[in-house]
Nucleic acid binder design. Structure first.
Lengths: 107, 107
DNA sequence: CATAGATACCTCATCTGTCAAGGTATATTA
DNA sequence: TAATATACCTTGACAGATGAGGTATCTATG
């Protein structure tokens, strides 16, 4: 496992939720958007992405529905729930605290 | 595993190296110092600490020696090596990059 | 003098998120 | 016709974190 992966570990869910705050989206698109947002430096692995979706759905933070595309591959859309919004605020707070802490420790 | 633990995951080695930059130290002391530095909010679990020591030693980033205490429990001291110093700079750079990236993604 | 708590070390099995490797199907472009 | 992009998914293995357990010494309390 690369250092970056290990550092990012645990942020996957927050990253996905953050993205769904803007708008409903589907796996492939979310991954591309994250790649774009990070100037092509970070791309979630598919397996990581889907396992995170499962956890988020299990926790009630997202719900899913199939898109109504008549052409092309089917898309499974994800939408954030109210609980998901709350969870996101928690994740974000945790991140900010952890960031302060690590900055403090890596002086 | 708590959210915090997952967020901190992967930083253990950098945190230890950072501490050893200041001075040689031993497990128990390092843990107490980290607790103090974070205002009693974060304490490494012992098992986490020792497994990190093993990895760091394996990688040649630290070396160890026994203290010469004549009273009290024996202490195994850890010292950072030149390679460890280099590795720390890398870890720190990785952290700064990852921090930017996550900040960007959790807007 | 007994006992509780602090200091100080360590190991092992288990858990969990990540990921490599594999798969399916459709549309577009060369 | 073949390659590439889009789009979904599962499985097994890996590695860091951790709960639970262990050993030994010293100090303070009653």
């Amino acid at each position: 496992m690369s250092i970056t992966s290990d550092i990012l570990r645990g942020h996957t869910e927050a990253i996905i939720l953050s993205h769904l705050l803007e708008q409903d989206s589907y796996g492939y698109q979310i991954n591309k958007d994250i790649l774009k947002k990070t100037n092509n430096t970070y791309e979630l692995k598919e397996a990581t992405l889907y396992s995170a979706f499962r956890r988020l759905e299990q926790a009630g933070y997202i719900r899913t529905y199939w898109g109504d595309e008549t052409v092309g591959a089917r898309r499974r859309y994800y939408a954030i729930t109210d609980e998901g919004r709350k969870a996101y605020q928690e994740y974000k707070k945790e991140w900010q605290e952890a960031r302060e802490m690590i900055d403090q420790l890596l002086k």
